[in-house]
Computed example of a mutant assay.
Amino acid sequence: MVTTGASAEEVEQAWADNKLAQVLYHDWEAQTYDEKWSISFDERCTTVVRDRFMHVLEATRRPDESLPYGRVLELGAGTGFFALNLKLAGLVDEVHVSDLSPGMVEAAKANAQRLGFEIDGRVADAEHLPYEDDSFDLVVGHAVIHHIPDVEAALREVVRVLRPGGRFVIAGEPTTIGHWYARHISRATWETATRVSRLPPFRSKWAREQAELDESSRAAALEAVVDLHTFDPAELAAKARRAGADHVGTATEELTAAFAGWPIRTFEYAVAEDALGFGWAKFAYGSWRRLMRVDAVLGRVVPQRFFYNVGVTGTKPLR
């Protein structure tokens, strides 16, 4: 945790102050977040974001609901992965981002500038958004609400800042069952890969430096502090309705893709960075995409709670 740039006192306090832990962790992650999660702003990620957004949207999309959306806010935007790729996909026009982490807000604004456009970014607590009522046509989020202490309060804020009839789409949240099997798969993969890579036949090429492994372990420990929730899809929908949303629906993704994706990604972290080349990256991404197509079929018959990712959508009631 030394690499966060925080003082020892702040680090110690973060274990008891979750808001501070969120800021410290995500400021730290902002330095390498895009590389860690293979985030880019090109056809590959734009396609993933467009497909994920539309998958959740179609759960309750109205026949008269036209694209693109005008003014959009990304909640807990991180480096802008979701909103910026939505803009590149032509699904939104004017982008605003908010995040509790100043480092993430700056990273998102820098990414937008590199893409050739400007965005508004604010450091903001999702439970107390610094925007007027009825400000946005669309609010989006990706892998964000599981970090927020009071999810229902955040959803009330989302509904408040939407214009009447406006929509929110939040995707990429962990289900309770999915989180359980992902955690166990990842742990088994990490232990196996780190041990095998240190055996004499593999050590020179595959073993990652111990300092890097220790850093990853510290990151995983702090990640457990900032990851606050997992969700049952039906209960998540109920939270959105209690927050005041209409036309609420959920959509899930990644079943077989999660069983392959988590060990693949964990293996990448556990071995030396230069041990894997372009061929591996092509295999990993191609396997995930193929299994996502399988999961689209399984989604017709398998209950939502067994998938890894859940998304929720809804609208602000018309007055």
Rank of each mutant, 00 (worst) to 15 (best):
W180C: 03
A219I: 12
R198Y: 04
H96W: 13
V271F: 04
A188I: 09
R305M: 01
E212H: 12
P303M: 11
R167N: 08
A220K: 11
S186T: 10
R218A: 14
D125F: 03
Q304D: 15
R198N: 12
V105I: 14
H146S: 09
A296I: 00
N18A: 05
N85I: 12
T315Q: 15
T4G: 08
V72W: 06
G80P: 10
G76I: 06
S197N: 11
A30H: 01
L67M: 09
A59C: 05
V161C: 10
F306D: 04
F53Y: 09
G70F: 02
A224G: 13
A154L: 08
E212G: 00
L298D: 07
G141W: 03
Y269S: 07
E209Q: 13
T3C: 01
V294G: 06
E9A: 15
R61Y: 02
G261N: 05
L236F: 09
V248C: 05
D274G: 06
E12S: 10
F136Y: 14
T252I: 00
H146Y: 14
E223M: 09
V248T: 02
Y181P: 00
G141H: 04
E9P: 02
V248Y: 07
F53S: 03
E10F: 01
T266C: 05
G116P: 00
E43L: 05
L291N: 09
I148R: 05
P68M: 05
R198I: 11
T194R: 11
H184G: 01
V159W: 02
R44D: 10
R50D: 06
A260V: 03
H96V: 15
T313M: 09
Y269R: 14
R156T: 14
L24T: 06
L298H: 07
S7T: 15
G116N: 10
F283L: 15
L155K: 04
I145F: 13
L84P: 04
R61S: 08
V294I: 15
V151C: 11
L138I: 07
P149E: 10
L20Y: 03
F81S: 09
S40Y: 01
S217A: 15
T32F: 13
Y308Q: 12
E157I: 08
G311Q: 06
A83P: 02
Q113T: 12
R71G: 00
R183M: 09
F202K: 06
H147L: 12
A207C: 05
D137I: 06
S98V: 13
F283A: 13
P130L: 10
R319T: 13
I177G: 00
R208T: 10
N111Q: 14
S186R: 10
F117Q: 00
V23I: 15
P149K: 03
L162V: 09
A126S: 14
Q210S: 11
N111C: 07
S204K: 13
Y33I: 03
A237Y: 06
A221N: 02
L318I: 12
K316N: 07
K109E: 11
R167F: 02
A219Q: 13
S197I: 07
D134H: 13
R50C: 02
V11I: 15
